[in-house]
Each structure stands twice: as structure tokens, then as C-alpha cells.
Design a protein around this nucleic acid. Structure first.
Lengths: 185, 185
DNA sequence: TTAAACTTTCAGTAACTTCTGAAACTTCAA
DNA sequence: TTGAAGTTTCAGAAGTTACTGAAAGTTTAA
């Protein structure tokens, strides 16, 4: 395993950012290493390249598999396991979004649903429930929307993103182009 | 300060989720309390309601102000400061997104730009740079896109979100409805 | 100009998270 | 069936982050 200066910088940076992205330092480093390597790479090579313990490496690989960001790659005739990214960059980014949605939004949505079922006990609670209901609706929209975007697939998503301010104009025209039965309200 | 069971549940939950949303437990609790209270609330009331030290409360309030999620509300004739949310739920959600983008995406974008300026030293680096460039483009799209969405404003954003799978159909038609000079490619 | 009412800062401690390395486990070839 | 080559688990050490409470700072009214 090489680790040229360029790759080292990138790997170290992904380590630092790891915790902000939802995993820890070594998990971030391992992911960067696997993504940037054209070759499949073994757990031992990862541990050596990053100078981390074999145990920590194993935990990290398990974590990345649970996020579905990497997958095993069995080399015929080799006993040990090699690892490669679970897809292209778009796929990986999608998986990160999805996983974070599960951790950051879903639990709150489910609590809010429960809280909104209770009858408000007094005036204070009426006001609070209104706020909670707004938050609930917002989170539901975000969830529905992010599922929608995933279904679009990379190419259309790219078209949409590049559309930029055109989106606003398109929305103004939507009722003209989408027949009534498809309109939302 | 009351803290009915409903409000207590919500506040505690926002505390638990706080760390996943980019701030810590008490900061999450303080935010929930301020948002759910119809009345402006003072630092001392917050400390009492949440059973946390006055010092911690002060830190938390400062943090929330740096995120632009709450603002001070001066009551005439009262010496102490009261706090209220910095806007409606949509505004608050936007601020959280924006702040997180700054922390989670911008630093990586700037590193990637630097790394892509270097000439690749060998074959390994050529491959790695291609990957880094893909990541760079993706992050730029996300950034541009999220700025775009903020400019749309809440109502249009809502229309767009509710449009659901209609988005795909609209994209198919976009060249017909947006004149050539506006098309992206 | 003083002192009362409040806010902020910060050193030290408590709580939590990550990492190591040794032991336990698994798989396979001989 | 043994043991060599590998993987996983986990208790405790190291590192990190959050919290308290006391001291310092600020503002205002008298």
C-alpha cells in the first residue's frame, strides 16, 4: 500500500471530517482509503497504512458495511478478505444521506407523532402542540422529498441541480404543463 | 416556567437528538424550550426548568445565537434578557442546514480544490484525483442547490416538495417549457 | 461611586467516546 | 484433527467533550 502525499492529505482530512459526517476518525480514514484505491485492499493493509490496531480496523470495516458504503471482494485463491467501495460516488453519498436521515429524523418523527396524539392538557400545551405539529410536517416533507430524489436517479438529479434558478420559473409554469389530475392541490 | 409532561418529553428528546443535529444535549434542550414557549424566557428560568447550571445555560444561549436560532428580546423596564426563537420553524430549519453545510461541506470543498491543483505524481495519483474530482463536483452541486432552495422561499419550496414524483415528469418536459437560452447545456 | 442584579468566563471534574492489544473464535489445508 | 492464517470481541487506557460552580465582569439605579 502506497499512500502518496496526495492520498495521505485526503485520507487525513476525511478522518477529521468523519465525526461531522456521522462516523468517527478512523472510520472516515478507512473509507477514504478504500474509495481512493483502485485496487481492492485488505484489512491488514489498511491497518498498516493508517497505523491503527487490527481490532480498530475490524470495527471500522464493520461500521462501514453497516452503512453499506463498502463491500467485500473475494479474490479467488486468497483466504483473506478485500474491500472495495459499494458503488460510485453518487451511490455512496445517497447512502450517507439515507443513513443519517434514519438517525437524525426518523426517531423525532416517531416521537412527534406520539405526542400529537395526546389531548392537550391546557392552554400552554395547545400552543406547544401547534409548534410540534409544524415541526412534524416539515420533517415529513423532508423525508418524502429525499426519497423522491433518490428515485430520480443520478442523471435526472444532476439535471435538476444544474437547473438552478430555473426551478423557480418552472414552478410558476407547472400548472400549465402538468394536466390538472396531476396537480397537487 | 411550567414544563408540562408533554413539553418535558419534547424537550428531553430534543436534548438526546441534539448531538446528532450538530449541537450538544443542553443546547438542544434550551432550543426546544425556547421554541415551545409562547412567552419570552430568561436565562435563569431556563436554568431552573432544565436543572442545569447558570454557566452552562449562558454557554448554550451563546451557541444558539451563533447559529442564529434564537434572539434576544428586551422587555422594557426589565433588566434581564429574555430569549425567543429567531423565526418560524422553516427559518430555523434553514439556518441549521446552512450552518451544518459550513461545517460539514465547505472545509472539504476547499481542501479538494487545493489537492486538484497539484500535478499527479504518478499513476496511482491520477486515479485518486479522478475520484476526488468527482467528490468535488458532487459537493459543489449540493452547495449550489441548497443555496437555490433557500432563495425559493418557504411557499415555493413547499410546492416543490409536495410535487413528489411530478418532478421527474417536469424534468422530461423542461426543454419544451424553458426557452433555449435558459437551458443549462 | 456604590452596590445590587444580572451575565460571562474558565479551571477542574465528570461523563462519554474511541482505540489498543491480547484472548477467543473461525476457517481451511494438510 | 491439528495448526496456521486469518477475523472478531472486549476490558481497560487514552483522549475528547460537556458541565459545574465560583470568581470576574457588566450594567444600571440611586
Amino acid at each position: 500500500m502506497k499512500m502518496t502525499p496526495l492520498i495521505t492529505s485526503a485520507v487525513m482530512h476525511f478522518g477529521e471530517m468523519g465525526s461531522r459526517w456521522g462516523f468517527n476518525r478512523t472510520v472516515g480514514q478507512i473509507l477514504a482509503l478504500i474509495v481512493l484505491n483502485d485496487e481492492p485492499i485488505s484489512a491488514q493493509e489498511i491497518a498498516d497504512a493508517l497505523n491503527i490496531s487490527r481490532g480498530n480496523t475490524s470495527m471500522g470495516l464493520k461500521e462501514l458495511q453497516s452503512w453499506r458504503l463498502i463491500k467485500q471482494h473475494l479474490v479467488p485463491g486468497e483466504r483473506k478478505e478485500f474491500f472495495i467501495p459499494a458503488g460510485d460516488i453518487w451511490t455512496l453519498a445517497n447512502r450517507v444521506f439515507e443513513e443519517r436521515r434514519k438517525r437524525e429524523i426518523d426517531p423525532t418523527l416517531s416521537l412527534l407523532r406520539d405526542l400529537l396524539l395526546d389531548e392537550p392538557a391546557n392552554g400552554t400545551e395547545v400552543g406547544a402542540q401547534e409548534k410540534l405539529s409544524e415541526i412534524h410536517d416539515l420533517l415529513e416533507s423532508i423525508t418524502a422529498w429525499s426519497e423522491e430524489l433518490q428515485n430520480l436517479g443520478p442523471e435526472k438529479l444532476n439535471t435538476l441541480m444544474k437547473l438552478g434558478s430555473g426551478v423557480g420559473r418552472m414552478l410558476d409554469l407547472k400548472d400549465k404543463i402538468l394536466p390538472g389530475k396531476n396537480s397537487v392541490n
